[in-house]
Design a protein around this nucleic acid. Structure first.
Lengths: 339, 339
DNA sequence: TTGAAAGCGCTAACAG
DNA sequence: CTGTTAGCGCTTTCAA
């Protein structure tokens, strides 16, 4: 391995001079800079990160924590897409990303501790937001820089987070159904442990209320991402006296499941029933019919969270921020007009 | 930050003793070990990784390289699933994972160079295999430890890789169609730049040949993951004089698209046409009907690649290996009997 | 504009 | 069984 000393020796300068050239220190003459750079290239010199990190007491790396993967939820295309966003921001800032996937809550917590205690990373991005999350508490108590993608359960004002305005998005997409003449509108969501679900449902309720439609508890269904149980829940929706004519589904992946249950019961979208959902992952245009869905700009969520976190690591008392990424509705063919 | 010296001082021993306790060196008395450990806990001591890496000249970290994300292919649930596998292996070995997503080939190459030159990682896992890949060449020429998930394009005997027996899998799944009476069987695959596609198609051809079915070039279609163009390709399949009664599709995600094109043309699966594919991602059971597909054990691909790579980094002249992960066919409802 | 020297936190001979 | 010492590769005062 070629070190700073080797370069220095060949150049006939001191190691510190070489170091300064690397940092592009303005107090080094252009002549020496040029010479040193030439030699660095010739010898194939590359700075050793560990050595640099040791003295700098910082790693220029961010930790990214995936949610517990006990459920199949991780197969949601949401994740590769945020990772891409984070990756892009990180690349441009010359940072690196340390990824942690953990099967259980404990495993995740362990990994975070390793990252933080071992000074593996300068900050952490949480790809989930859960109630009573030991990780969040840990990070908060240590005052270790972190951001959440999604809305924090507690201490909302003390935690920097990047999210969509899910209430508004939920409202708007429901209104789209209303504008198309729908009045009997159901909501199918994932676990209520997740804030996204809750917020999107809030928006749904709000839209109904504003439109003067009385909401119907029987129209609200919560199901896991996985098949099991989901079918019955949806089936029950259609055994009602007044089955819905439109459904707001909280996630494209769930929509896929719903579409198919519908088809099994010989309901046709959008003729018999209209469907709208959220995320606009690649799948949404692959289904038949393609889904009208809220594009939440997943990639951008990734970029912004990484940027916000990097700012925080560079300046410990950067103020807490709440960054809301705009959404937009993508109109496709899953919605029909009533009457 | 509490260092080894602090612990040493409080314990009244030398730093090296503390270091040895950390390494659980057998030549330290149990008494001191106990005392030192107690103090470490009390002071909240955690070893500094950068310092350790500097002297150890190794980082206990693996780099993971995603394919270029210009195409939407990255949204394939395949990726979160391999990452989980890798993450699991890595966690148990107390390694960490540095993830690189790059938009362009150049960006990817840059990141790999950073990882390798900067000694960020001890080895690299490539989540793709492409012809004329500068990254592969770079790694090979430097003799830097790496493994490929998939089959290398060149130097197959010199590169450790983890893959399925895609030819056999392709053969078996095609035979399943044949056993159900199908003779006019088509193949729809992704880009032929990918070895997976090629191998699975080989298996398909082989099965036909063994069954004495003459293969038909018109039955072979290649389409990108993305919608565009895919529809026409499939449509052309059904404008033939003798349209197929069964289709082997090289990826569950493509299957999803195909199913929907089929439905658009009022073909019903499995009544009018049978469909089989590969990967068994979560989606495969969410479609209507659920897909008969080859489970390639993505998670296991991840685990094994990480393990193989770690072995390699620990022992530079660990022999080159080819690790084949067994597949199994998951029978669901997308296949019908002919006659 | 450059060099000398100290030190980041840890490990590993070597010595005892 | 434990301490002393040197050094990993880099940055950064301080001095010139």
């Amino acid at each position: 391995m070629v070190t700073i000393k080797d370069v220095a020796q060949v150049c006939g300068v001191s190691p510190s001079t070489v170091s300064r050239v690397i940092a592009d220190n303005p107090r080094i003459s252009n002549a020496t800079k040029k010479k040193v750079r030439k030699v660095m290239k010739e010898l194939g010199y590359h700075p050793n990160i560990s050595a640099r990190n040791l003295v700098a007491k910082s790693t220029n790396a961010l930790g990214v924590i995936m949610p517990s993967s006990t459920s199949k939820a991780l197969q949601n295309p949401f994740f590769p897409e945020v990772l891409r966003g984070i990756g892009s921001a990180i690349h441009h800032m010359k940072y690196s990303m340390s990824l942690s996937t953990g099967d259980t809550e404990d495993e995740i917590f362990e990994e975070v501790k390793r990252m933080v205690y071992g000074s593996y990373v300068d900050g952490v991005i949480l790809l989930y937001s859960r109630a009573n999350d030991p990780v969040t508490t840990f990070l908060r108590e240590r005052d270790f820089p972190f951001v959440i993608i999604g809305k924090p359960y507690e201490y909302e004002n003390e935690i920097t987070y990047v999210d969509n305005d899910n209430i508004r998005a939920g409202k708007e997409i429901t209104e789209h159904l209303i504008h198309n003449g729908h009045e009997r509108i159901a909501f199918i969501g994932g676990s209520t442990d997740l804030f996204v679900t809750v917020d999107r449902e809030k928006g749904y309720s709000l839209a109904l209320k504003e439109a003067g439609i009385t909401s119907n508890e029987q129209y609200k269904v919560h199901t896991e991402f996985v098949r099991s149980g989901g079918e019955e829940a949806v089936a029950s929706l259609f055994s009602l006296n007044n089955p819905p004519t439109g459904i707001v589904v909280s996630d494209d992946l769930i929509s896929l499941g719903v579409t198919n249950m519908l088809r099994q019961s010989s309901y046709e979208v959008p003729k018999d029933i209209s469907l709208v959902s959220f995320n606009n992952v690649y799948l949404a245009e692959l289904t038949q019919p393609p889904l009208t869905t809220v594009d939440i700009q997943i990639y951008e969520l990734g970029i912004q969270s990484a940027r916000a976190l990097i700012e925080k690591t560079m300046n410990k008392n950067e103020p807490t921020k709440r960054i809301i990424i705009p959404h937009k509705i993508v109109y496709r063919e899953s919605v029909g007009k009533i009457k």
